[in-house]
């Protein structure tokens, strides 16, 4: 299965990754970013949806992605765990190229098993929850640890109950998703992602499908995760959450990063008129 992939386009400017990779942190020590994307491009049938996205997230950081609908936020998130393959540029998580293996000077496409192994380290929470409807809340959480990680059933179950407790749903372990409210389902989905001990968590508009009064519970869980030092990339329209929890806010539009920086700068003093217009429309 390992044929030379689209190596030529991916292999450009390896040196820049390294230089982009090491930014000094608050203490002046160089940290490797956990997630780094470099000039990521992606097209659907000739229409370029991502036009060279470059960004980096350090361990423990929370990055919020804002942007109007159709700007490519979901697509970018899906590229990070290789649900979509990129057409150009490169993405690496934890120092490993996503979806490709680099040996010497050549880049090889990974086979499905290697991709699956890589995805274990990257959790994802979806707008529409996507819980497995035929499994109970607890089974949703333990399915991958038992089946993929081969953790013993009892340990996985204990851990699952612990995670359910952490998202405030310990009493609903035996409920099926259809018996849970949207907010509860989303919290189970977060617990499911956490069960694989990911180093990075991706959230694609996790509260957009929820009734307003249920949004708070989910955001609370996410804030706790952020405070516990989880590295997260969050696509959201919740400006309040971004202001309070994000270390970096990135504003995307038309497949490019328009503006990025600390929330105080991007949200309160946007430089680009496009960012300003978007923020006005959301608030």
């Amino acid at each position: 299965m390992t044929g030379a992939g689209p190596g030529t386009s991916v292999a450009t400017s390896r040196a820049t990754t390294a230089s982009l990779a090491s930014e000094p942190d608050a203490h002046g020590v160089a940290v490797e970013p956990l997630l780094s994307a470099l000039k990521v491009r992606k097209s659907y049938g000739g229409v370029e949806v991502l036009k060279g996205i470059s960004l980096a997230v350090n361990p423990g950081q929370v990055m919020c992605l804002l942007g109007p609908s159709g700007s490519g936020k979901s697509t970018f998130l899906r590229c990070i765990n290789h649900l979509e393959r990129i057409d150009g540029g490169r993405i690496s998580v934890g120092g490993e190229l996503v979806g490709y293996a680099q040996r010497k000077d050549r880049i090889f496409e990974m086979n499905p098993r290697e991709v699956a192994r890589q995805r274990r380290g990257i959790g994802m929470v979806f707008q529409r929850f996507n819980l497995f409807p035929h499994m109970t809340a607890l089974e949703n959480i333990t399915a991958a640890p038992i089946g993929v990680r081969r953790i013993s059933k009892q340990i996985a179950k204990d851990r699952g109950l612990e995670l359910l407790d952490r998202v405030g749903l310990a009493s609903l372990a035996q409920s099926y998703p259809a018996q849970l409210s949207g907010g509860q389902q989303q919290r189970v989905a977060i617990a499911r992602a956490l069960a694989m001990d990911p180093q990075l968590l991706l959230f694609d508009e996790p509260t957009s499908a929820l009734d307003p009064e249920l949004v708070g519970d989910v955001l609370d869980v996410m804030r706790t995760l952020a405070a516990d030092g989880m590295t997260m990339v969050v696509v959201t329209h919740e400006i309040g959450f971004a202001r309070g929890a994000a270390d970096v806010v990135v504003f995307m539009d038309g497949g490019v990063v328009v503006e990025s920086g600390p929330p105080a700068e991007v949200l309160d003093n946007p430089q680009s008129p496009r960012t300003r217009a978007f923020l006005d429309s959301v608030i």
């Binding site: 499905p112 192994r117 274990r120 959790g123």
Partner: peptide, 25 residues
Amino acid sequence: EGQYEAAYSVGMSPVFTLFKVVLPQ
């Protein structure tokens, strides 16, 4: 389609996804 994405996102292989997630549904 979201079921495949959810399964893949927790690191399930295509075959595992088929037997544990897709076929039971």
